[in-house]
Design a protein around this nucleic acid. Structure first.
Lengths: 188, 188
DNA sequence: GGTTAGAGAAAGAACGGTCGTTCTCTCTGA
DNA sequence: TCAGAGAGAACGACCGTTCTTTCTCTAACC
């Protein structure tokens, strides 16, 4: 367990792999391409990761961590429970519109890993459960009724936002999402 | 142009490829596996299709045709414009809940084909444009205001339904979709 | 009418390339 | 001196594709 976490070559490798996996699809990107673009050699990859699937899991874990960090950071500015809901909706919209313009990394990965028992799919389930729970928490703290129903549809709107910013008009999709999400969240 | 359309081996091959591509992901399924499960030989594949990408395009074209046929068939039973909206929403929910339980074939394919200019992506755009247009048509025929806005959010709800029936609880997702979609469509 | 030449489709061997992985060798620094 | 990391060759397996061979059915000719 010498180099399991936080080593510069590992981080660089993971960042490169993440970019390639997200942009081109996991199954389309071979380890050779990751190594070439990262400028490291095979031995480096297999020293830090057990194999390609471990690299994929690390990629999604990294996405999960970044998203959770941005989420918490964004909500720190909230001055009220209603304001937290507003910030959450704007933050989700910004993320899809500006950064995740090629769809949701988790939804995409699920499409490439058909086995529901695989570590990849379990990680995806964990991430989605976290997001649902966060939405329920924000809605409950704002005193809304039907917390479960509202959270469910907000989560669905986020999935749709990700798809729409990828495949349809990002501006229209974003505007539609914000309008609908605010209504569901009981804002305005 | 002897065997361009409607030949049994071609149809059987395409049906097998469609099932495998949809269930396991296009890039995960090699032609060997398609051939083996279809019980045909390589020569048969390359006689009817130019290559794997042509097979993928044919798979999505087939999905597109089936969906459009089901859509039209379902709407034929409508006795009014409002009833058509109801049938459309129920039909979409049924399709995701019963048949397309592993996500939307087009959204999944888009994730595996990063080049927006590729024939695959163009076909996906065409299908999505058709669906948006159909929603606008139904809403306009029912005399609703803000046809574009309503159609946009209905289309988004359908994308979310597909994702949710794949990765979350299908029952909850379906119920949430129908409730929200009926409200957006101005029903009840 | 029987035979055979020819076209079309199927069978499967084989191609070069890439997949993910493992190996050996060399270098480096303590 | 020696453990550990990097470099790169090499592995078997599979990728999508092409090739040659075999089979079959048709049609024309004797």
């Amino acid at each position: 367990m010498a180099s399991s976490r936080q080593s510069p070559p590992r981080d660089h490798l993971l960042a490169t792999a993440s970019r390639l996996f997200y942009n081109d699809g996991i199954n389309r990107v071979g380890v050779d391409r990751v190594l070439q673009e990262a400028g490291v050699t095979r031995a480096t990859l297999y020293r830090h990761f057990a194999g390609k699937e471990a690299l994929v899991v690390a990629y999604l874990e990294r996405e999960d961590k970044v998203i959770q960090a941005l989420w918490k950071e964004g909500l720190d500015r909230a001055v009220s429970a209603d304001h937290a809901l507003e910030l959450a909706i704007e933050g989700i919209a910004d993320d899809a519109y500006r950064h995740h313009t090629r769809g949701c990394p988790f939804i995409k990965a699920a499409g490439e890993y058909p086995d529901p028992e695989s570590p990849v799919r379990q990680l995806i389930n964990k991430h989605r459960a976290w997001f649902h729970a966060e939405l329920r928490r924000l809605l409950a703290e704002a005193g809304r009724d039907d917390v479960d129903g509202r959270a469910e549809i907000l989560a669905m709107l986020r999935d749709a936002l990700m798809v729409g910013c990828f495949l349809d008009d990002p501006d229209v999709t974003r505007r539609t999402f914000v309008r609908a999400a605010r209504r569901v969240a009981g804002l305005r």
